[in-house]
Design a protein around this nucleic acid. Structure first.
Lengths: 339, 339
DNA sequence: CTGTTAGCGCTTTCAA
DNA sequence: TTGAAAGCGCTAACAG
């Protein structure tokens, strides 16, 4: 723990000069600057980041709340966030909340204790505890992917999930499917509502029935895909096409369909959502919606940056474009087996 | 930014009392304690973490250096680290180094600037810059999975990679294979040397030839698996069994073998390493080595904790057990096609 | 260009 | 049990 004082002693200058030589070298004569630099080296000195931060009142850090680090989609967003944050001199504190409220509260409160200057939420909920809610009102916060549910409105970056839902429905209908199943992830979120209603809207337009019993699920995991398929294929008239709300679910679904001796896509078409890295290398490769996750992360940092520096936000909501990737997990309906 | 001063004013006590009421309530009379608590609520006060940390000289944080957050194996280690860290009141600062030296140096230096009290390295290299090397000598640091290469020795937790390499070789040989290929990840690491020499040692014992041309690769990615297969299958006598140094490589390899019209495992057996979540749900499910990644993370924190508190380390090296999971990506040699 | 001095928000002696 | 005061390591305003 060698401090600035020791350096100033070695260099024979005041501590202020040491500080200046390090932070604003142009304000120091070349001669003293060198003396200071030498002393720094001799003392093995590194400025105490904590002290600097208390003094300036800024931590130059942002917290990122991730529901699940294992989710490949979030990982890509995080990459975007980290690279953009680095760009503007901010450190990212990753908080893996594991969907637990207390953990989320704890990480979120870092921004109330000056440990971070702003917050990016990847989930849909307001991350602060009831206790902190009032204090958090004026905190710089944006969400990406989801939209934060709170009476106070925070900016957000998201996909046009409604249209993506429609695109998937159109894609499957164009292959002749009329019996659909869906395995959802987290219920109770904007994403859920948008994807589902987009999907349903097309079916309604085409006069295709979509009974409630064909909608199952509840979490974005491989296991949910397995459970979902088990449930859906129990029906006397099982679906010939399944809309999985993310790629993890689709992976589980395809795996389980195979276990039940259904061929994908011959017997059942499966589509996913997110386009995680492994989707392309599955067998069969997954038809899915590609989200510009990386860019969404970058955008989030840009917005947050403006908020943290009290600059006007150009817009309070950013909608990103998606791409439907038609691969081989979906295909024409098999008339012989689908009666 | 409401400070302790405001609270003391509201409560009509000194700032020292406020501090005590919050950190060591038993040193304050119940009456004043309540007054303080009320004032805290009224003021919307949260102690400034930065200030507390400068004062105490401890950040109660640890940095974790991850070569690649996308790697599912590391994720599991991280889970273990986070849960154990939480347990003992430490915050985890995740540093995704993306294999870049400068990023790594930067994150590592956090522990020199009092931003963190210790460091866990998931890669094999000494993470500090040449400049910082001297200072870093006495820093609490452990590595997991890999072993840090430096003249000064740091404790580490790892797998018996040599034996695991042997186990895989035995497994494949028992199926009758005699022509092997291997696709490695990061060359120049203890892991690489151990897995390879374990694997080779069995081949040698069995008098099976393993020419250098059958060893390819260089990074732990799906793409490397694809490249590797392309290279290996070019030989006049291509391998009938391929040892991939992690599951990502195996995923790429299987994908590419399929593209080249080889059946797995009928024509070529493939084995991986790590047992990431998706391995079980691949088609075919991957034969691989399961590492107790979570437990390794926990162990790492335990060791680091002792180091940060100047307690004796029970041992300086922890070897964890592995399990060979025989699934369906490996199988008996196909005598008809392997001539 | 450099030094003195006053803090940042907090913890922790030391006295009372 | 409480308060006054010193000080953690640093930055920044002010003088010179």
């Amino acid at each position: 723990m060698t401090s600035i004082r020791k350096v100033s002693a070695i260099a024979g200058v005041s501590i202020a000069t040491v500080s200046r030589a390090l932070k604003t070298p142009e304000q120091v004569s070349p001669g003293t600057r060198q003396k200071v630099l030498d002393a720094v080296k001799e003392a093995g000195y590194r400025p105490n980041w904590l002290a600097t931060s208390v003094k300036t009142g800024k931590s130059k850090s942002i917290v990122v709340l991730v529901p699940n680090l294992l989710n490949a989609f979030f990982q890509r967003i995080i990459e975007g966030i980290e690279s953009a944050a680095q760009e503007c001199g901010y450190t990212v504190l990753l908080g893996d909340t594991q969907g637990r409220k207390t953990l989320e509260n704890e990480y979120a409160s870092m921004v109330l204790t000056s440990r971070a200057d702003g917050l990016i939420q990847l989930d849909h909920c307001f991350p602060f505890s009831d206790n902190d809610a009032e204090l958090a009102r004026s905190i710089p916060m944006v969400s990406v992917g989801e939209r934060i549910e709170s009476q106070h409105h925070y900016p957000f970056i998201h996909l046009d999930n409604y249209s993506a839902g429609r695109a998937l429905a159109h894609h499957l209908i164009s292959y002749g499917h009329v019996r659909f199943g869906a395995i959802a992830g987290q219920i109770q979120s904007q994403i859920y509502r948008d994807r589902l209603s987009g999907f349903k809207s097309v079916l309604a337009e085409e006069n295709i029935d979509f009974p409630d019993s064909m909608l199952v699920g509840g979490s974005y995991t491989i296991e949910e895909g397995i459970r979902g398929v088990n449930e859906l294929m129990k029906h006397k008239k099982p679906p010939t096409a399944i809309f999985c709300f993310n790629d993890d679910i689709a992976i589980g679904a395809i795996h389980q369909l195979r276990s039940l001796n259904y061929k994908v896509p011959k017997d059942v078409s499966v589509v996913g959502f997110d386009n995680i890295r492994v989707s392309e290398f599955m067998h069969p490769p997954l038809t899915t919606i590609d989200q510009p996750a990386y860019e969404m992360g970058v955008k989030a940092v840009e917005m947050l940056y403006r908020m943290m520096h009290n600059q006007e936000l150009l817009r309070t909501r950013e909608i990103m474009p998606f791409t439907l990737l038609e691969r081989h997990s979906s295909g024409p309906i098999n008339r012989s087996t689908s009666q």
